[in-house]
Each structure stands twice: as C-alpha cells, then as structure tokens.
Amino acid sequence: MNAFQGQTFQMHQLINIKQVISITGLCRSTIYEMMDQDSPYYDPTFPKKVKITQNRIGWSAYEIHQWIESKLANRE
C-alpha cells in the first residue's frame, strides 16, 4: 500500500510541517513530541528534521514515506 497515493512528491524532496501533518494525519504537537527524547511519545524511528536555513526546517518526503510503510508493515 502506498501512503502517498494521489500525492506527487520527489524522493529527495524536503517537505514542511504542514505537509508532514497532512501526510501522516498527526497534529503538529504530536510530531514534535515524537521527536523529543524526554517525551513519553518519543519515537526513535520517526524521521529526523533537516535544518534548511536558520529559521526553517523540513523532513525528507522519502523518509516520512518509509516511516509510514514500516508502521503499516508492523501493525497487528
């Protein structure tokens, strides 16, 4: 199953937080909680952010896709 069905993206494309929210169905705060090692929601498998400029971050569209695929493969 392709989590990006109906969406166009480049494998090496960097996407912003709004796109990550749209693709994953997670809210902004949950995404940041999943990246926070001190949070009970921390997920070490969630893709790391990429610092684009001093004030802008993004995520690899490919890594987000792979993360979703791994969640689907490991479901019970």
Rank of each mutant, 00 (worst) to 15 (best):
D36K: 12
I68L: 05
I68W: 02
T24D: 09
I64C: 04
F46P: 01
Q7S: 06
P40S: 01
Q54T: 15
F4H: 04
T53F: 00
I21L: 04
I31L: 07
S39G: 06
S70K: 13
Y42F: 10
S22K: 12
K51L: 12
Q5Y: 09
K71G: 12
C27I: 15
E63Q: 09
V50K: 15
M1P: 10
F46E: 03
A61V: 01
Y62M: 03
N55P: 07
H12M: 07
K48H: 06
N16S: 11
F46R: 14
M34P: 01
L14A: 08
G6F: 05
Y62A: 03
R28C: 13
V20E: 09
Q7Y: 11
Y62I: 09
W67L: 04
D38I: 00
T45G: 00
Q66N: 06
A3F: 09
R28S: 14
I17A: 12
D36G: 02
H65L: 05
H65E: 05
N55L: 11
Q37P: 00
V20Y: 11
D38G: 10
R56F: 10
I17Q: 10
W67F: 08
W67T: 04
P44H: 14
H65D: 04
S22R: 11
W67H: 07
A61Y: 02
I64K: 07
D43C: 14
T30M: 15
T8D: 09
F4C: 03
E33N: 12
F4D: 04
G6I: 00
N16H: 13
Q7D: 02
K49F: 14
K49C: 08
N16L: 09
D38V: 00
Q66W: 02
Y32M: 02
Q54A: 12
M11K: 06
D43G: 10
P40W: 04
V50H: 15
T24E: 09
A3P: 02
Q19A: 11
Q37L: 07
K18Y: 13
I57P: 05
I57G: 00
P40I: 00
K49Q: 13
R56C: 13
I23L: 15
R56Q: 14
Q19W: 09
V50L: 15
I15R: 13
N2G: 03
Y42G: 00
Q54C: 10
T30V: 07
S70L: 08
F46I: 10
Y32Q: 01
H12K: 06
M34R: 15
A3T: 00
G58Q: 04
N55C: 10
F9T: 01
M34W: 03
Q7L: 14
C27F: 13
L26D: 11
I21Y: 05
F4L: 08
M1T: 12
H12T: 00
R56M: 13
A61T: 00
D36P: 03
S60Y: 06
M11Y: 08
Q19M: 12
K49I: 05
I52T: 11
K49H: 13
Y42Q: 02
H12L: 04
Q13S: 07
D36H: 08
G58T: 06
F4S: 02
P40G: 02
Y62T: 10
Y42W: 06
I68P: 02
I68A: 00
